[in-house]
Amino acid sequence: MKIQEVPQDITYYEGQKRACYAINNEGKYVVVPSSGWSVEDVVNGLAVDEMATALEETRKAVFSGLKSPLCYHMQRRQMTPGILAQTAGIATFRVKRHFRPAIFAELKPSVLERYARALALTVEELKTVPQTPERESK
């Protein structure tokens, strides 16, 4: 890759640049900052869209009373039940049980507190989900 070929396609790095190794006119390798490559946008976009779709489905499931907000917030943090269980110090099977709205509604404040801390939220935030789809993760 020559320095002229280093892709400067997109700006989804939000102003950040990434270092690429490329050959300059004297044939020497140098570091060239790149603002992004359309190929990366395609492959990364696929993963990001997939997560956003899954999250949106869960959000709707919370409103139709099928899932608890805990499930939504776990997905929003890109966690699995296993990771959440370890982070909160609660057994995995209990975490999965707490995805059921009726059981989640009866949780003790101390358990909610642990989930809130694990997910970097307040207890109030943990009990609700946003009214509209949310794409940003923080």
Binding site: M1, A22, K28, V39, L46
Partner: peptide, 29 residues
């Protein structure tokens, strides 16, 4: 999906381009 995952490993995760191949070429130089 599988192919996208593969290309992400190659280009996305701070490899300096082409799955570290350019970085290694720079080392050989």
């Amino acid at each position: 999906r599988q192919l996208a995952g593969l290309v992400r490993m190659q280009e996305e995760v701070g490899t300096g381009g082409a799955g570290f191949r350019y970085l290694y070429a720079a080392f050989l130089q």
